[in-house]
Structures are given as structure tokens and as C-alpha cells.
Design a protein around this nucleic acid. Structure first.
Length: 642
RNA sequence: GCCUGGGUAGCUUAGCGGUAAAGCGCGUCCUUGGUAAGGACGAGACCGCGGGUUCAAAUCCCGCCUCAGGCUCCA
């Protein structure tokens, strides 16, 4: 028997006989670890503990303390689901049932399920868990496996494709039930502490819409009931924060049927926030010498042919026939900006030219994809296009990255960066792409930031750096982006006169600090749970007169002292308690309670959204605090307890 | 676009073959309140749109629009 070298996570190396299993190696390390072994990670791939090791490899032993344990457990839960389903519906055909980040799903055919059926299936699952069946791995020949799945075309397809080269395939058996599966799994069904079936949806076999539609049941599993409870509470919390619900409740926006899908209307409250967001980036752009431009929403398709959008983007464009001529709503702002550049005659002394526009664009996304503000047909990009000399690319990209950092820091958002490279559908030569990608790589390298490479995720005209930020619920979003483009300048024949008196082609940089206002707004709504920082809040202060007699004083405060802020007076004849309740529901950062005492002394009583109170506050003290809180864009109201 | 499930007052929802119900909000009146919901009365709905079945349709059937959850795609 030959020896192989197994490298462990701490870097140590272990010599074992070729063919030793993951579990054998674990026992070699220590008997405690051996008996705790659930599975292994061999060269990064999750493997069953009985997996024989035949070559030198890196090995991580998975125990119930490992982060991968949950994944294994959930995979087993998917099997328990499969068994439960087939107990209740013997005709059900199982397709695939993998674990996911949040749980597991199983795609099935041959059953007609709706959400009411889940309860019975879950009860069956619980009884399988209760019975604590051993889960055993069994090797069968491919022929034998094909016999097992005589009536299941999905499993047969897996056997003929993925397992096409294998002599034998593995099954996992529990009780009288088995499933074709590579594993790994936990030792017995009883290890699953808690399961919950969540919802039911449809999915295509292998994700291809040409294929059969399968019924997908989503569920999750945990080691304990308590973990499941925590998960369900978080889920409920995310539902409570849903921007569509808050958008309705806080009267921010609507998407009524009559206006068409994915075409949101911003109400005064929503627009108040958008105006602040616009002013913020407009200010940042002013600081970097951007010039503001404006372009129409509609252009002749000639322009889209010139830009390459007609070849590469028509499927997503709204086209209109106007007097037998074809026009298209703009899906991007760059061709308009390039055309503006082309109306001038530039020297190297003029560059970089930096154009900015909060430009509305239209993209005909698939109908089923539209959702609240996160996917819409009409959205606004805080767009910017720079026309630069090749040797100033790095400096400009670096400045943009600093701007993006400032934006994300302002909202208390952490982020990661990624370099997205050439996609399949693209324009331009290999040399141009290589040059562009290597320049972005250089900027990233010299910035010292960690970054991922996302192969094939670039725009059709050039590579880009994407910024993925994380919200309060731990979800990641793309938004800010910097894109390098050597192709559009060529297509539009852009030029400037160099120091050598020769014509040169500028490079275009496309960039956005938010990405789209719609999506960024949506993320902010959920990130802050509607509790916007004071500088963004549609209503920054609400004055609550104790009785109707104090309304006059309230008006005086609003008009004379607080006119620079968004202030409302609650003048309905309600009790103070009700006025406070309503102001909290409306998520107003500051309430000023004013009764006879305050009116007599010329003060206010301040209450913030955290329920903290401060009495007999001098009006000017409050006003100047508010001014600095808004000016510095502080994330939370901090007048009280500062 | 495809699959499944929905669309009932401004909002949230009940009703599911016999021409509509509640809470919140809105209006009027009483109350003038001191830090998380005072009271009374009232207005408000072609029950998503169009067709069909039926003596009778919000309710059953068909088509369309639209929303939700997914699949694929993306800012």
C-alpha cells in the first residue's frame, strides 16, 4: 500500500495509507475527533466521512462544531422531507434536494401540492426525526440505480450525465427509504433538532425554462428549536421592514396598476428623501469639478446603433415607432453624454471632462422580475461620464473610489469590492479589454483593498469595479460602480488634440455613487427600518401642542425658529398620548411637546424617536443642535444624551 | 416570459351563490388633554377589468390586467 500526505488546516501533514477514509484520518488525529466526525472537506469539497483518500490532499474534519455542519444537517433534512413526501404521496418523483444558505429545498414532480399540504408533510417529517432512523451510505452499481429509478426521468438523467462516468453511485438509506445522493449526511434522522417547511414555489428542471416545471418546497432545519425560533423571528423582522410595506405606511411611493408595472410614483415624503440624496451626490460631484448636463428620455435608434446598445441591449429596450421612424427610450445615459462631448472641440488642456446627470433610464425587464423599488422599468442613475487622457485613468478612478467610500460611510454601510471582467456579449478587441482590465486591477492593487474577481460580469463595453455593500439585515447589494470604456469613444469617434498637436482618443469612465436611486432608496428604507437619519427624514420635527390653545405658539416655532427644517404641527384635537403614538408610528426623529409651561417660558419639551425626553429646552439650543446634526448627516437623532 | 397563489372602502382585512362587514384613517360634534390610542355620530366600495354559467355572481368558469413567492436575469 502506498502512502499519501494529508495536509490539515493548521498546516501540519499526516502520512496515511492510500484509501484511508476521512473518518480513519480523524481517528488517527484523536479518538475524540474520530467519533465526532460528521463529514470531511477534501480540497475544498464537502465529502462523506467514509470517502477514501487516494491522493495527497488538504483535509478539514467536519464535526457538529463546524460551520459546515448545518449544511450537512439541512441536506439530511431535505432527505427527511423526501421520505415524508413519498410516504404521503407515493407517486411523487424526487428531482434534486440540496441545502442552501438558509435551509434546503426539494424539487419534486408528480404531485399537486399547495401551502396547506405543508403542515401534514411537516408532521410526517417530525415523526421520521422522532423515530431516529440510522442514515447509511450504500454503494450501488449504475445499472442497479437505473432500475431503482425506472419511473423517475430526473434521477435517470442525473445518472446518465453527472454520474455518467461512474461505475458505482452512492445512495443514502434511512428506514425503508433511499435517495441517490453524494452526501454527506448526519448519522441519524434524530440529529435534526428542528425543521420547518416555509413555502412552495415553482422551478424549472435544471433552471432551464425549456424544461419541465417542478414544484419546489423550501424548508429549513436547525440543531435546536431555539435556533429555528431565532431564524423565524429574523425572517419576520425582514418582512416587517419590507420597503413595500413601509413605503405604503410612510406614504413614500406607490406603484398603482393604472400607471403600469415597475413605474413608481414618488409621493412628497419619498421625494423629500430623494431630494436629499440627490443634493448629497450633486455636492460631491461639484467638489470634483463635474459639470451637470441633461439629456432627453428618447433618442433615434441611430444613436443606439452607434453606441452598440441596439446590438447588445435591444431585448431590454422600449422601442417606439414615431412617423415610421424608430426611437428608443434610453436604457443608459452614456450615448447622450458622449454625443454632448462630440459637439465640442477639445484640447488636452480641457481634459478630464466630467459630465453628471441624475438621468432616468428605462429597461424592459422580465415582468415576473419586477418587485417594489428593487426591480423597476424606470429608474434614475446618479450617472457620471468622464472623458480622460489614458494616463489620468488611475487618478480619476481613485478619486471616484474615494467618493463612493464617503457615500457608503455616510449611511454606515460596510462594503466589498470586485473586479468584473469581459462578458460573453461585448464589443471591442481583445487588446482593448486586456488593457482596461489590467488598469482597473492596478488601481485596486495600489489601493491596497481586498477584492474579488467576477469573471464575465463586466458591462458589454468595458470592465468595471463593483461595490457590494451590506445592510442592517446582513444582505448584500450592488450599487456603486466604476466602469472603464475604450469602446464607446471609438464608436462615437471621440477625440481631443494632444500636446503634440495630434488627434487622440479619450477614454470614457462610467460611474455611479449610488447606482440607481430606486434600489439605493429601497435598501435605505429597509436598512433603517424607516427610521431615517434626521437629514433624510421627510418630516424632521413634529410639534405637538398640548391643547388647541398652544397651536399659535407651535406655528410661531415652526415659522420663526425652525423654518429651515421640515416641520409639521399636529393640530388634530387629540390627546397628547395619541399625538405621541402617531408621531412614533410615523417615525419622526424629534417631537416637540408644547403646552402652557413651554409657551410661558419660551421653551420646548423635546422627545426623540427613542422615547427619551428633555424638558424646558431653550429653542435656540435645539435649533442649533438640529442644524449640526443635519449638516453632518449624523445617522441617529442625538440631541438627548449627547 | 414561465409556474403557483392572490386582487373586497384611502389602508389592513372578514365574507366565498341570495346586491356587502370590521378596525384604522377621513368629516362633524362633545371633550382641551402633559409624554405610546378620550367619546358620539357620519360619509366612504360598479367587491381589478371584460365575457360566460345561473332565476340570482364579490362568491363558479374563461380571457386580460396587476401583485406576491419562485425560476432565469439585473441597478
Amino acid at each position: 500500500m502506498s502512502e499519501i500526505v494529508v495536509t490539515l488546516p493548521d498546516g501540519s501533514e499526516l502520512e496515511v495509507e492510500s484509501g484511508a477514509s476521512v473518518e480513519d484520518v480523524a481517528y488517527e488525529i484523536g479518538p475524540g475527533l474520530g467519533s465526532d466526525t460528521v463529514a470531511g472537506i477534501v480540497d475544498g469539497e464537502l465529502a462523506d466521512k467514509s470517502e477514501p483518500l487516494r491522493e495527497d490532499c488538504e483535509l478539514v474534519i467536519v464535526t457538529d462544531q463546524s460551520s459546515e455542519y448545518l449544511q450537512v444537517l439541512r441536506h439530511s433534512a431535505a432527505h427527511v422531507f423526501g421520505q415524508a413526501l413519498q410516504r404521503l404521496y407515493p407517486d411523487a418523483k424526487l428531482a434534486i434536494g440540496p441545502p442552501t444558505d438558509e435551509g434546503f429545498y426539494y424539487d419534486v414532480a408528480g404531485v399537486d401540492l399547495d401551502s396547506d399540504d405543508l403542515e401534514a408533510i411537516q408532521a410526517e417529517m417530525e415523526s421520521i426525526i422522532e423515530a431516529d432512523y440510522d442514515i447509511e451510505r450504500v454503494e450501488r452499481s449504475r445499472e442497479e440505480a437505473l432500475d431503482v429509478y425506472e419511473d423517475n426521468e430526473y434521477k435517470r438523467e442525473i445518472l446518465e450525465t453527472e454520474a455518467g462516468d461512474e461505475e458505482t453511485v452512492s445512495f443514502y438509506v434511512q428506514d425503508d427509504w433511499q435517495d441517490l445522493c453524494q452526501g454527506p449526511h448526519v448519522d441519524s434522522t434524530g440529529e435534526i433538532g428542528a425543521v420547518k417547511l416555509l413555502n412552495i414555489a415553482a422551478a424549472y428542471w435544471r433552471g432551464d425554462e425549456e424544461n419541465d416545471t417542478l414544484t419546489r418546497i423550501y424548508g429549513t432545519a436547525f440543531e435546536s428549536e431555539a435556533d429555528l425560533e431565532t431564524f423565524l423571528e429574523r425572517r419576520e423582522e425582514a418582512k416587517e421592514r419590507d420597503h413595500r410595506k413601509l413605503g405604503q405606511e410612510l406614504d413614500l411611493f406607490s406603484i398603482p396598476d393604472v400607471t403600469g408595472p415597475g413605474l413608481p410614483l414618488y409621493h412628497p415624503n419619498g421625494k423629500a428623501i430623494l431630494r436629499e440624496l440627490e443634493a448629497f451626490v450633486d455636492g460631491l460631484n461639484d467638489e470634483q469639478d463635474y459639470e451637470f448636463v441633461e439629456t432627453p428620455h428618447l433618442f433615434r435608434t441611430e444613436l443606439w446603433k452607434q453606441s452598440g446598445h441596439y446590438e447588445n441591449y435591444v431585448d431590454d429596450m422600449f422601442l417606439l415607432d414615431v412617423n415610421d421612424e424608430e426611437y428608443g427610450l434610453k436604457p443608459m445615459n452614456c450615448p447622450g453624454h458622449a454625443t454632448i462631448f462630440n459637439q465640442g472641440n477639445w484640447s488636452y488642456r480641457d481634459l478630464p471632462i466630467r459630465y453628471a446627470e441624475n438621468g432616468k433610464v428605462y429597461r424592459k425587464e422580465q415582468r415576473g422580475e419586477l418587485s417594489g423599488l428593487s426591480r423597476v422599468w424606470a429608474f434614475t442613475i446618479d450617472d457620471g461620464h468622464l472623458f480622460v487622457e489614458p494616463d489620468s485613468i488611475e487618478r480619476e478612478v481613485d478619486t471616484i473610489m474615494r467618493q463612493i467610500n464617503e457615500v457608503l460611510e455616510t449611511f454606515d454601510l460596510d462594503y466589498e469590492v470586485a473586479l468584473a471582467t469581459r462578458p460573453e456579449k461585448s464589443v471591442g478587441s481583445d487588446e482593448i479589454w486586456e488593457q482596461a482590465e489590467s488598469q482597473l486591477r492596478d488601481v485596486l492593487e495600489s489601493s491596497g483593498m481586498d477584492y474579488d474577481v467576477e469573471s464575465g460580469d463586466g458591462a458589454f463595453y468595458g470592465p468595471k469595479i463593483d461595490f457590494a455593500f451590506e445592510d442592517a439585515l446582513g444582505r448584500n447589494w450592488d450599487g456603486p460602480t466604476v466602469q472603464l470604456d475604450f469602446n464607446m469613444p471609438e464608436r462615437f469617434d471621440l477625440s481631443y488634440t494632444g500636446e503634440d498637436n495630434e488627434e487622440h482618443q479619450p477614454v470614457m469612465i462610467h460611474r455611479a455613487l449610488y447606482g440607481s436611486y430606486e434600489r439605493f432608496f429601497m435598501v435605505l428604507i429597509e436598512h433603517f427600518n424607516g427610521n431615517f437619519p434626521t437629514w433624510l427624514a421627510p418630516e424632521q420635527v413634529r410639534i405637538l401642542p398640548v391643547s388647541d390653545d398652544n397651536v399659535g405658539y407651535a406655528k410661531q416655532l415652526k415659522n420663526r425658529y425652525l423654518s429651515e427644517f421640515r416641520v409639521e404641527i399636529e393640530d388634530r384635537s387629540w390627546t397628547v398620548g395619541k399625538k405621541i403614538q402617531t408621531a412614533h408610528d410615523d417615525r419622526v426623529p424629534y417631537m416637540l411637546v408644547v403646552g402652557d409651561d413651554e409657551e410661558g417660558a419660551g421653551t420646548v419639551s423635546v422627545r426623540d424617536r427613542f422615547e427619551a425626553e428633555a424638558k424646558a429646552v431653550d429653542v435656540e439650543t435645539f435649533r442649533s443642535h438640529l442644524e449640526s446634526e443635519v449638516e453632518q448627516k449624523r445617522v441617529e437623532p442625538d440631541f438627548i444624551g449627547e
